[in-house]
């Protein structure tokens, strides 16, 4: 059992874990009832899955070729920073364009407040 075999095992485990995570979360795309719950699956598990795969790739190139790839680190940082922002933007635009919550939802404290906010915005834009 030499070093490269151990590294191969570690990389394989990490890549497979990431793959299973992203597969399961895309399964959530089919099963979950509305867009808001789907965004939970899209932002959290997909991010973690891609993180695992990229870290596995990083470890592979580091120990097999002695190459510390700055591009890969930048990619990891970028995915980390942008995935939650994208998820937030999607559900925000969905709510503002009037996509309904699923029937099983129990609580919605935003609806009345959003009306007030929109009225305020219109009032300010007329004035200015």
């Amino acid at each position: 059992m030499n070093v490269s075999a151990i590294i191969e095992i570690i990389v394989a485990v990490m890549v497979l874990a990431g793959t299973v995570l992203s597969l399961l979360s895309s399964l959530g795309f089919i099963r979950l009832p509305d867009i808001y719950t789907r965004s939970h699956a899209a932002t959290k598990s997909v991010t973690l899955g891609i993180l695992f795969i990229l870290l596995g790739t990083f470890i592979y190139f580091w120990f097999m070729h002695g190459l510390i790839s700055i591009r890969l680190l930048l990619g990891i940082l970028f995915v980390f920073l942008t995935a939650p922002v994208a998820g937030h933007l999607v559900i925000r635009s969905a709510y503002r364009s009037g996509v309904k919550l699923s029937d099983t939802s129990v609580k919605d404290e935003l609806r009345d407040d959003l009306k007030k906010m929109k009225q305020l915005e219109q009032y300010h834009s007329k004035e200015g």
Partner: peptide, 9 residues
């Protein structure tokens, strides 16, 4: 969006 992440993987 999530399709793009799968392509990255």
């Amino acid at each position: 969006d999530s399709l793009g992440y799968s392509v990255i993987g």
